[in-house]
């Protein structure tokens, strides 16, 4: 009986990293939007675009994850 412990570790790490990247970047985006709403003056557009950049990172992470699991793309 052989148990593939390595596969389990891979699943655990992949889950951890991907979920934290998605949640982290999205959370940062949410926060920066909130900051942008309060901030006045010239900093506002900068903060806001950084927030959208964060959402972009989040979306890219999700798409990359899907790309990784679909054999048709390789």
């Amino acid at each position: 009986m052989t148990i593939d412990w390595f596969a389990l570790v891979v699943v655990a790490l992949a889950t951890l990293v991907s979920a934290l990247v998605v949640v982290g970047s999205y959370g940062l985006g949410v926060r920066l939007l909130a900051v942008a709403a309060d901030a006045a003056g010239p900093r506002q557009p900068l903060v806001r675009s950084t927030a959208y950049l964060c959402f972009g990172v989040c979306a890219a992470a999700v798409l990359y994850g899907i790309y990784l699991i679909v054999p048709a793309f390789h």
Partner: peptide, 18 residues
């Protein structure tokens, strides 16, 4: 909710892959 759904999705997708 967002955190939970993200981790659900990544756990299942990673597992399905293997």
């Amino acid at each position: 909710g967002f955190a939970a759904e993200s981790s659900t999705a990544s756990a299942i997708l990673a597992s399905s892959h293997l």
